[in-house]
Simulated scan of single mutants.
Amino acid sequence: MTDHPPMRSFGRIKSRPIKPRQAALMDTLLPRIRIPDGTIELSALAPGAAEVWLEIGFGGGEHMAAQAARRPDVLILGAEPFLNGVASALRHLDERGLENVRLHAGDVRELLSRLPDASLARIFILFPDPWPKARHHKRRLIQADLLAELARVLAPGGRLRFASDWADYVDWTLERALRTPGLSWTAQRADDFRRPPADHVTTRYEEKRLGDCAPVFLDFVKA
């Protein structure tokens, strides 16, 4: 397992006041489902889970909660530094009564550094901040070192899904992922990346179409 310094989070950690109900869940539910510090024993987090998935930057938690509801046999880890997003996700988990999600309210690289090799079956990175200005590209989540870490924690046959509605970020990600040892792009034809995958869950953020192109979905598999 490789040690990495924590990656600086360039996004907003908190913007608007957290609603009272969500604030209460931050005090009650989050401590119960927070991923503990130190070495992570995945079997202890969810004994009997068929697989372990990770969503990086889960936003408001809609996609994560929907996937967890579909697959109660899977343990889903979620990482998000934006506290309003964490609070929103807690509401979704509480309303659905989901017990198979564990959260890291912080930078995902700190979490990745504590995960065992080949421990994840799926990773989702959906519509991350594109940082479209060239001088800000160094702030993008997708970088060579992060992709190397994702390849390390993916099990053979495991899948990484990246989605964006910014054309330059799609090209940026594809270029770097194809240079990452162990990752292979699964697309065989244009519809494989132009159409949402069958198991995709559309969120309110995605529906806003804030980017400069239609959503693109890149799926990679670990060799």
Score class of each variant (00 low, 15 high):
1 M>S: 15
1 M>Y: 11
5 P>E: 14
7 M>R: 10
7 M>C: 00
7 M>E: 07
11 G>T: 14
11 G>N: 11
12 R>D: 10
12 R>N: 12
13 I>W: 08
17 P>S: 12
21 R>K: 14
23 A>M: 02
24 A>D: 13
25 L>I: 05
25 L>Q: 03
29 L>H: 07
30 L>M: 09
31 P>H: 05
37 D>K: 11
41 E>C: 07
42 L>M: 08
42 L>W: 05
42 L>K: 10
45 L>E: 06
45 L>A: 07
48 G>E: 07
49 A>W: 03
51 E>I: 09
53 W>Y: 09
53 W>H: 13
56 I>W: 01
57 G>R: 05
57 G>F: 04
63 H>K: 06
64 M>P: 01
65 A>P: 12
66 A>G: 06
66 A>D: 09
68 A>V: 10
71 R>A: 15
71 R>K: 12
72 P>I: 07
73 D>H: 07
77 L>V: 09
78 G>H: 06
79 A>M: 10
80 E>W: 07
82 F>C: 00
82 F>E: 02
83 L>E: 12
85 G>S: 08
88 S>W: 07
94 D>P: 06
97 G>R: 05
98 L>H: 03
100 N>K: 00
100 N>R: 04
100 N>D: 08
102 R>L: 07
103 L>I: 14
104 H>G: 01
106 G>P: 00
109 R>D: 13
110 E>R: 12
110 E>M: 12
116 P>H: 09
117 D>A: 15
118 A>P: 01
118 A>D: 11
120 L>Y: 05
121 A>Y: 02
123 I>M: 08
125 I>T: 03
127 F>E: 01
127 F>I: 00
129 D>Y: 02
132 P>Q: 00
134 A>P: 05
134 A>V: 12
142 I>Y: 02
143 Q>Y: 01
144 A>H: 09
145 D>F: 00
154 L>R: 04
154 L>S: 04
156 P>T: 08
157 G>C: 10
161 R>K: 13
161 R>V: 07
162 F>S: 06
163 A>I: 03
165 D>F: 13
166 W>G: 02
167 A>G: 12
168 D>Y: 10
185 W>L: 13
185 W>S: 02
187 A>G: 07
189 R>S: 10
189 R>W: 02
193 F>P: 01
196 P>N: 09
196 P>V: 14
197 P>Q: 12
200 H>N: 13
202 T>G: 00
210 L>A: 11
213 C>I: 10
217 F>A: 07
222 K>R: 15
